[in-house]
Simulated scan of single mutants.
Amino acid sequence: MVDNDSWDSLSEFTLAEILEMENKYKAIGDETLNEEFCNNLATRFSCSSNRLGKSTITWQQVQLFFQEKQMEVQTQQESSAMALKLFVDLSGEDSSKPLEVMQKRKGTVEDLKELSFEARSAKDYAWYDVETFLNYRVLCNGELEVRVRFAGFDKAEDEWVNVETAVRERSIPLEPSECGMVNIGDLVLCYLDREYYQLYCDAHVVDIQRQTHDDKGCTCVFVVCYDHDYSEENVSLERICRRPIT
């Protein structure tokens, strides 16, 4: 077991010593944990003219450095393996059939089943159907990003998006008979129709004015508050997509 003094002594290594140990670990990996190997390396470091006036290095300090390096590499490998599995899982879904965005998204539920995921663009905070996942990368903080192509757009609009915060299952349009599935407080994807742009944005339902109607048409009024700017608007059911039940 390494004592507390050894932990504190890690800062005693010079930059040259750290670089040498890094290279040795890359070359022989876990063999660097061998006590004899660590002892020989510590002795050579301590006898070096570069350590004049500095404390000697113990074999425990050297071994601790390699143990930390081993843990770091294992963590990176596990993170990359999980990221690759998630990317493969996402890419394995049938998300290859492009559809026209915005108004054509109001097509039948059967048409939309071809698209399994939606992603949020950093350009306008709107959600778009994913045509395909192109690549993935793991950031230095361990977070996973995927490069997506949005349905109906060309490669010039491809974006890197965070898997945890900006990729999710596709939202589901509602039939007139399904208005009862929407309740106050629900997160919904709402069609934002403005003079110069039309987007699908996250919103929360803050009020509902229920009306009597048949299965052919819903006349209920839903008051929503958009998450990106906190503006409120009265919308009809046809402008709302519900989030999948998980």
Rank of each mutant, 00 (worst) to 15 (best):
A166P: 01
N135D: 15
V148P: 02
G180D: 12
N183F: 08
D124C: 07
E118S: 03
L134C: 12
E143V: 07
R105K: 07
M181H: 03
S121I: 13
N141W: 02
A122F: 06
W127Q: 00
F153T: 14
V182Y: 04
G107P: 07
S116A: 02
K123A: 00
E178A: 03
N141G: 00
E131R: 03
E100M: 06
E175G: 02
W127N: 11
V130C: 06
T108L: 08
G185D: 07
Y125P: 09
E143F: 01
S171V: 07
L115N: 12
P176Q: 03
E157I: 06
A126R: 09
F117T: 01
M102G: 04
E164Y: 07
V161R: 14
E169A: 00
W160A: 04
D154A: 13
Y128N: 02
E110L: 15
E164T: 13
E118I: 00
E114N: 12
D154N: 11
K123I: 10
N162Y: 02
S116Q: 07
I184A: 00
Y125D: 08
R137A: 06
D129N: 05
M102Y: 14
F150S: 10
E145A: 07
G152L: 04
T108W: 15
Y125R: 13
D124P: 02
K123G: 00
E164Q: 10
C179V: 02
D186V: 06
T132I: 04
R137N: 02
D186S: 15
S121T: 03
G142S: 03
K106I: 09
S177M: 04
D124L: 04
N135L: 01
G107S: 08
L134E: 08
L139R: 09
E114P: 08
R105M: 14
E178C: 00
V163H: 02
L112A: 08
S121R: 01
V163E: 05
D158K: 07
K123C: 02
P173C: 01
L139Y: 00
Q103G: 04
A119C: 03
R105I: 13
V146L: 01
N141P: 01
M181Y: 10
R105D: 10
C140W: 03
I184M: 05
R170A: 11
E110K: 15
V109E: 15
R137V: 05
K106Q: 15
L144T: 05
K113C: 10
A122D: 15
W160Q: 01
K106H: 14
A126Y: 10
G142P: 08
M102W: 11
E169G: 08
E114A: 12
E131P: 12
A151Q: 13
E157R: 14
A122H: 11
E131D: 13
E100T: 05
L174P: 06
D186A: 12
S116L: 00
A119K: 02
L115V: 15
M102L: 11
V161D: 11
T108A: 13
A122M: 10
L174D: 00
T108N: 15
N162G: 11
M181L: 08
S171A: 08
A122R: 05
D154C: 15
A156R: 14
D154R: 12
M102C: 04
I172H: 13
Y136C: 10
S121N: 00
P176I: 00
S116H: 07
L139A: 02
D186F: 10
A119W: 12
